[in-house]
Design a protein around this nucleic acid. Sequence first.
DNA 1: TTGTAAGCGTTATCAG
DNA 2: CTGATAACGCTTACAA
Lengths: 349, 349
Amino acid sequence: MSKKRATLIDVAKLSGLSTGTVSRVLNGHPSVSDEARKKVEDAIKKLNYVPLSTARSLAKGVSNVIMLSMIEENPILPSTWRYELPVIQGIYDCLRDTPYNLQVGIGFVEEAQKSKFFENLLKDKYIDGLLILGSWPIDHRSLIYLEERNIPYVLIGCRSSVPTRAEVNFDNHGAVVEVIEYLVQLGHTKFALIGGLKEQLHMVDRAKGFRDALLARDLKVYPNLIKFGDYQIDSGYRLMLELLEEDPRPTAIICGNDLMAAGAIKAIHDKGYKIPSDFSVVGFDDSEISKVVDPPLTTIKAPTFEMGNLAVEKLCSMIQQKDMELEEIAILPCELIIRSSTGECNQKN
Amino acid sequence: MSKKRATLIDVAKLSGLSTGTVSRVLNGHPSVSDEARKKVEDAIKKLNYVPLSTARSLAKGVSNVIMLSMIEENPILPSTWRYELPVIQGIYDCLRDTPYNLQVGIGFVEEAQKSKFFENLLKDKYIDGLLILGSWPIDHRSLIYLEERNIPYVLIGCRSSVPTRAEVNFDNHGAVVEVIEYLVQLGHTKFALIGGLKEQLHMVDRAKGFRDALLARDLKVYPNLIKFGDYQIDSGYRLMLELLEEDPRPTAIICGNDLMAAGAIKAIHDKGYKIPSDFSVVGFDDSEISKVVDPPLTTIKAPTFEMGNLAVEKLCSMIQQKDMELEEIAILPCELIIRSSTGECNQKN
DNA sequence: TTGTAAGCGTTATCAG
DNA sequence: CTGATAACGCTTACAA
């Protein structure tokens, strides 16, 4: 049953041409006569020949492999999954027009914050470029290894303490600024933040956006109204209960994700208040949850698919022109999706 | 900057030994003197040498690549994402103890139902084995290609019209039977099904489980209480409204996923009924949504991580013993998670 | 336009 | 236990 697979030499024999010519046909080289091309193509078809990628790689000195390393919380958070799969889709979508194959590796945040992370990950691997998808700081010593090895890489959603060649991210800061602008128009002045994991990079940027937006409007930043949880529903619930006891009491609450917003909404309802008449609540992610909760959630949608696309584009151009010196970081805008969990501020000041 | 990477020959020179010996050290071959081994290891360290995987593959005749092909609805459904990422995690978790690298390819259902799907997908690729992750029928002619090429493969969550070598799935049928048993104990006799996409394999099996469970209990299967939607919240809402008009009116509703269940709950509430006193509602997936809706949803959790693990185990053993004839299909049990959307049937019969 | 042959970096088979 | 040396399948000067 297991007939040996045909090789390029078999094709050459059958077509009566040389291996060189066959190879040229395979690689779309211009200087091949139509006649020869035809013969080779027939032989290929007849033999069911498929070139062996490893042999090709070896001869050409390229691997045609791009590796995606996903750096995950441990245990992995559902909202991370929800964010990462569209990114992967975007990556693959862009990659299918290229000769590159996509290989994946999954690591944990703790590992990526140690120095030999990529060295270990890439042990025994031969890749042309690396995509790094994560939400936590990357140990810069790991990145040095990539530089030494001359492996082009693009960071997606994460960064290191030292500046890196190329980064793709969405605009956490701007998104929060935008939603606060919107809420200020509605008359809100007392804002609270129910954050997710405090050290996570997206959250760091959003917290900064939160402060900056308020300061820009000459609104007061109340430290007691800024709290952090763990992106799970329960922490949203708990933190909202705390907020209801604070002084001043906020009228608008920005949450780290839709799930925490759902928890906050539950807390508000449990205490007998109404949304949006008593409180405006904003989520993040535009997940299904935002449509399921009552009232439907105003939320922020990150351009995940586009991020994947752009990251691949950048990586490919880095691979082409090996020594580009660009140190470029792309920040894509988010979309504010307004539903009914936000409304006019009814509290007299 | 881009110093050439060291090769095995460099290591041989520096250590004063032959390439053969270096190779033996690399591959943990027993017949190497401790002294030689030490010298080689020193040289490797000094040169920062890493073997080139493609050269290795070529010489050994294996690729060390396992490909995961994900077959998706178009556009991709969020609930599919939610299911697939844990499977991938399970796959990777098992693979990191092996020499195999994981490569991924994403295709759409329409493509996989045509005959040349895998031929196209694997064009120019050299893999040792294939994992096929999907929820829709696979064209069996595509699989013939794999057989001819002698590429071991494992289907995850899907199947073809002809029996295949190895399949891993979760027990859709049994899960529905179990939940109906549970509801029967609570006194329910009139069951409705709000299905997801009707032709999708998981749904096919669940619908069959639905009928079988009722018949086994000598309960009537009302065709007008079996409806199919598209796994989105709106169709759950709409179909529930329809069910409220049917005769007989069901008291227990099994939904295709948590999202449709959320829609159904909304419809029930909108019409002024209570859960679980008037209706019991069951979801599927144990997604975050099941904890967000009110009341929290009784649902079914599939062993996604374990499926990934098992699939890899199977594939690896198929790769080892090339011509195993097993035609084995593994069905893993689901977990019924009881929350408060289900309860005693209060309707007098 | 085509053929020849020398690599690409490893492994594996033989002798020694 | 070790060293030559021929594969592995393909690409690519270089010649013709």
